[in-house]
């Protein structure tokens, strides 16, 4: 079972790969759009990559609730059950 730290590390690698943000800056309290300068199209790419990586489904309606990295980690953690 992946821990929240594992999820954070994998997610940080995805964000770095797609949006060019240094993985070390991808912390739980950071907002994707406000702090990490991820735009909405990159967010879609991150979501799709995260779905593949973590084997979860993140519907479009849910994406707007994932404001911070922590929101995304929590969502993925719960969705993985």
């Amino acid at each position: 079972m992946a821990t929240q730290t594992d999820i954070l590390n994998d997610l940080a690698a995805i964000v770095e790969d797609i949006a060019g943000v240094d993985a070390a800056d991808v912390q739980l309290d950071k907002e994707f759009i406000g702090d990490l300068d991820v735009d909405s199209l990159s967010m879609v790419e991150i979501v799709v990559a995260a779905e593949e990586k973590f084997g979860v489904r993140i519907p479009d309606d849910e994406v707007k609730n994932l404001k911070t990295v922590g929101d995304a980690v929590n969502y993925i953690d719960k969705a993985q059950g």
Binding site: L41, V48, D60
Partner: peptide
């Protein structure tokens, strides 16, 4: 609806 179209088109 740009973001939804982007998701469909790109992937």
């Amino acid at each position: 609806q740009g973001n939804a179209v982007f998701r469909w088109a790109a992937f």
